[in-house]
């Protein structure tokens, strides 16, 4: 294995360890999603059309906000004692550092989605159908977009005085198309009858991911310096 790949794996493992070790980490994100789902469940009549029409969007609102909390911590832990300096001085392409950070964020976001989805099914009284196979695919592709854009902007926001705000301001406008596509596809995955329509949304999601990941890898080289 190349040094770059070893570095990416070491960074990913370290970030996952720190995320699950910290009390303000993953668990608080999980509770945040739970609260959002509960509020919407109790706030609307369960049999109302409004809730039925908006349920996919509610799921992705919870995930989008919780993801920003996760992504915001990506480079905060590096700047606590300037560990970022040690990473910046590695004799390799900074893209490997990005890849390690990106992979840890991707795994955390996917895990969050997979834990929240069963609750989403229960709270919104969804009927499990054969279309549910589509859901892990949507989750993975959306998480790829969120993690690539979020990891890059988290690094950029870290040098800003308003880092928490800066991440949201920079990230949401870029990530909105991905979330819209995710909502459309989720609606397809959870509907009770009929064929799956608009397959091209899936291709569109994949195209967004490729563009975001490539751009993030290129731009990260310039972000890691001073």
């Amino acid at each position: 294995m190349s040094l770059g790949a070893r570095v990416a794996i070491a960074i990913m493992k370290k970030d996952l360890l720190l995320e699950f070790r910290s009390k303000e980490g993953f668990l608080s994100n999980l509770f945040f999603c739970l609260v959002v789902l509960l509020l919407f469940t109790f706030g609307f009549d369960p049999s109302s059309d409004a809730l039925r029409q908006g349920r996919a969007a509610i799921f992705w609102i919870a995930i989008a906000f919780a993801s920003v909390l996760t992504l915001g911590r990506t480079f905060q832990r590096e700047s606590a004692d300037q560990a970022i300096e040690a990473l910046s001085l590695l004799p390799l392409d900074p893209g490997w550092v990005f890849l390690g950070k990106f992979l840890s964020n991707l795994l955390i976001i996917v895990l969050l989605m997979l834990l929240i989805f069963p609750l989403f099914v229960v709270f919104f009284d969804l009927t499990v159908t054969w279309r549910f196979w589509l859901f892990p695919v949507i989750c993975l592709l959306t998480a790829l977009g969120l993690a690539s854009v979020g990891t890059l902007f988290s690094a950029m926001a870290e040098s800003s005085k308003l880092r928490e705000v800066a991440l949201s301001i920079m990230m949401y406008p870029i990530i909105i198309p991905v979330l819209i596509v995710a909502v459309q596809l989720t609606e397809q995955a959870i509907k009770i009858s009929g064929d799956i329509e608009n397959w091209h949304w899936l291709t569109l999601l994949l195209v967004f991911d490729v563009i975001f990941l490539t751009a993030a890898l290129v731009i990260f080289d310039y972000v890691l310096g001073d």
Binding site: D81, Q82, A83, E85, A86, P91
Partner: peptide, 18 residues
């Protein structure tokens, strides 16, 4: 150069929660 160099700045560059 970076392969052969070690840098110790004002901060320790360690992770407090490890």
């Amino acid at each position: 150069y970076r392969r052969k160099m070690g840098y110790l700045g004002h901060s320790t560059s360690l992770y407090p929660d490890l």
